[in-house]
Amino acid sequence: MARAGLTTERLVRAGAELADEVGFGQVTVSALARRFDVKVASLYSHLKNSQDLRTRIALLALEELADRAADALAGRAGRDALIAFADVYRDYAREHPGRYAAARLRLDPEAAAASAGGRHAQMTRAILRGYDLTEPDQTHAVRLLGSVFHGYVGLELAGGFSHSAPDPQETWEWILDRLDATLRDWPPA
């Protein structure tokens, strides 16, 4: 019988909070059991194992990011949409570093199909339609944006920009300006 009050959703949310506190790599069923002061075995009626827990945290993070991005993009186009989208990723990573790391987890095909990853791709492509890119350039641009956003955020979270000028916010804005210019001036296929 499952312990009263424990549900899969509650455990996944607690796992996401734990990821933000101690790092995604430290999240295990054992660590979660300690958080709830229960035996590990009592969680196995809700979770298969630690990989299942991490996958569920990744799915939660992708959903949260997609919801934030959709809200930020509403009514925006072109440069404004690009900046709003980029800022969602950066802000989410700063607020929820463990969940952000979870969102980068490579998912198996079944989990990936059930994830909000498709929503992220659709929103990115919607932004790029404002720049009038066609295939395969649109796919190249999707990869460019993902690389820049995740690369910068990863370096920033690791403290890579904390000891030098200019301010990381200034660099972020400069990068987004350059991305906008690159997308506007993209050579025709």
Rank of each mutant, 00 (worst) to 15 (best):
D67G: 13
L62N: 02
T28A: 10
P187S: 14
D67N: 12
R184C: 08
R99M: 11
L59T: 03
T182V: 13
L145Q: 08
T8N: 11
T55V: 15
A114M: 09
F161L: 13
T134M: 08
L179E: 02
G15D: 02
A33L: 06
D180N: 15
D71C: 05
A58Y: 01
P168W: 00
R104H: 13
A102Y: 00
G151Q: 05
W174A: 11
G98N: 08
D37G: 10
I57V: 15
D37W: 06
P97A: 09
H163P: 01
P187Q: 14
E17N: 06
E64Q: 13
H140F: 14
D87V: 05
F161K: 08
T55Y: 04
L82D: 00
R129W: 11
H96T: 04
E110M: 10
G98M: 05
L144A: 09
L144E: 01
A19I: 01
A101R: 10
A141P: 02
L128W: 03
M123L: 15
P136Y: 05
A58P: 01
E9W: 04
L183M: 09
R129D: 15
G130T: 06
P109D: 11
S115P: 06
L82W: 02
A14L: 03
Q122G: 08
G146E: 07
R54I: 06
W186Y: 15
A84G: 04
A189G: 12
A74S: 14
V22T: 12
A66P: 01
T55H: 07
A141F: 02
L145M: 14
A181D: 12
A181W: 07
R106L: 13
R90P: 02
A141W: 02
R125W: 04
L18H: 00
E156G: 09
R178G: 10
V153A: 03
L144I: 11
R178H: 14
P187H: 15
R68G: 13
N49L: 04
G117I: 09
A4Y: 13
A112R: 12
D87Q: 10
L183N: 07
D52E: 07
R3C: 05
A16I: 00
T124W: 03
D52S: 07
P166Y: 07
H120I: 11
A61G: 04
E135V: 01
A77E: 12
A72E: 10
G151E: 06
R13G: 00
V88Y: 11
G154S: 15
G146K: 03
L62S: 00
V27M: 05
W186C: 09
F36S: 02
R54V: 05
D132E: 14
G117M: 12
F149V: 14
R79E: 12
G159Y: 07
Y100P: 01
D91M: 07
K39T: 09
I175A: 04
E173D: 12
G25M: 07
A181E: 12
V12D: 06
L59R: 02
H120L: 14
R129A: 13
Q122S: 13
G146Q: 07
D167T: 05
Q51N: 14
W186P: 10
F149L: 15
I175C: 03
A16N: 02
A70Y: 00
Q51R: 14
S115A: 09
A103I: 01
A103L: 02
A16V: 01
P168L: 00
N49M: 04
V88G: 07
Y89E: 10
R99T: 02
G23E: 08
Y152V: 12
Y44L: 12
G117Y: 07
S45V: 12
V38T: 13
R125D: 07
A2F: 11
